[in-house]
Amino acid sequence: MRLNQATDYAFRMVLYLASLPEGTKITGAALAEKQNIPERFLLKIMRSLTKAGIMKSYRGVEGGFALQRAPKDITLFDIIDAVEGQTELQRCLHDIGSCSRGCSGMCSIYAAFADIQRDLAARLKSIDFETLAKQEANLRMVHEAEAQLTAKKEAAEK
């Protein structure tokens, strides 16, 4: 299974907004610049996220975008579902009639992929953007501390 570029951008957009104070609005242009996403593509993705109730769109001079739900209530699964639609590892999981063998879901491959699909969906639903934003902040702090330490070492060597 490969997620498309739009989904990756959607993850980044939601993660960025989840790291800001609740209710923060940001223009599409500013978000595109901050996340290095082509603005036209960002706006297309935003339509999907808005339709799914993940983002809220504000029109007008002071318009922009904000999260419609709390980051703790938005999961990786929600983003994938909003941008890619219902995804299946095997097409027969969605349409039993698509099996060219004609077994109507009565085979070991179907059973194996049904279990994997169920486990994958459960795992994706268990990872929320509040948690991811906290992890991102911690990673940023570690990176900054390492950069400061490196700078001190380099200064001491001079």
Rank of each mutant, 00 (worst) to 15 (best):
M1Q: 13
M1N: 14
L3M: 13
N4E: 08
A6E: 14
T7Y: 01
D8A: 08
D8K: 05
Y9F: 15
A10W: 03
A10Y: 04
F11W: 11
R12W: 06
M13G: 00
M13N: 01
V14C: 06
L15C: 08
L17F: 03
A18M: 04
L20S: 00
L20Y: 05
L20T: 01
T24Q: 06
T24K: 06
I26N: 04
A29K: 15
A30D: 15
L31M: 15
A32C: 03
E33C: 07
K34L: 08
K34Q: 09
N36S: 14
R40E: 11
R40K: 14
R40P: 05
L43N: 11
I45F: 07
L49T: 05
L49Y: 00
K51M: 02
K51N: 03
K51I: 00
A52F: 05
A52T: 05
I54G: 02
I54T: 05
M55E: 10
K56V: 04
S57L: 02
S57D: 02
R59V: 02
V61Q: 13
V61F: 12
E62W: 13
G63L: 04
G64N: 06
F65N: 00
A66D: 00
A66F: 06
Q68K: 14
Q68Y: 09
Q68T: 01
R69Y: 03
P71N: 02
K72R: 14
K72T: 08
D73P: 10
D73E: 15
I74L: 04
L76K: 07
L76V: 09
L76Q: 08
L76R: 08
I79S: 02
I79L: 11
D81E: 14
D81T: 07
V83I: 12
V83Y: 00
Q86F: 06
T87P: 07
E88M: 12
E88S: 13
Q90S: 03
Q90Y: 10
R91G: 01
R91V: 06
R91L: 06
R91A: 05
L93D: 02
H94C: 12
H94T: 08
D95H: 12
I96Y: 03
I96K: 05
I96V: 12
G97V: 01
G97L: 10
S98H: 03
S98E: 03
C99G: 00
S100C: 13
G102L: 08
G105H: 01
M106G: 14
M106H: 15
C107H: 04
C107D: 02
C107K: 04
S108E: 15
I109D: 15
A111K: 01
A111D: 10
A112R: 10
A112S: 10
A114C: 10
D115A: 09
D115T: 01
I116L: 11
Q117T: 00
D119T: 00
D119Y: 11
L120E: 02
A121S: 12
A121W: 09
K125P: 09
S126W: 15
I127K: 04
E130G: 08
T131G: 09
A133S: 15
Q135H: 13
Q135Y: 08
E136M: 11
N138Y: 09
L139N: 10
R140K: 12
R140W: 01
M141P: 01
V142Y: 12
V142F: 12
H143F: 10
A145N: 06
A145S: 09
A145F: 06
A147Q: 11
A147L: 10
A147I: 04
T150Y: 13
A151P: 00
A151R: 07
K153R: 11
K153G: 03
A156Q: 11
K158Q: 07
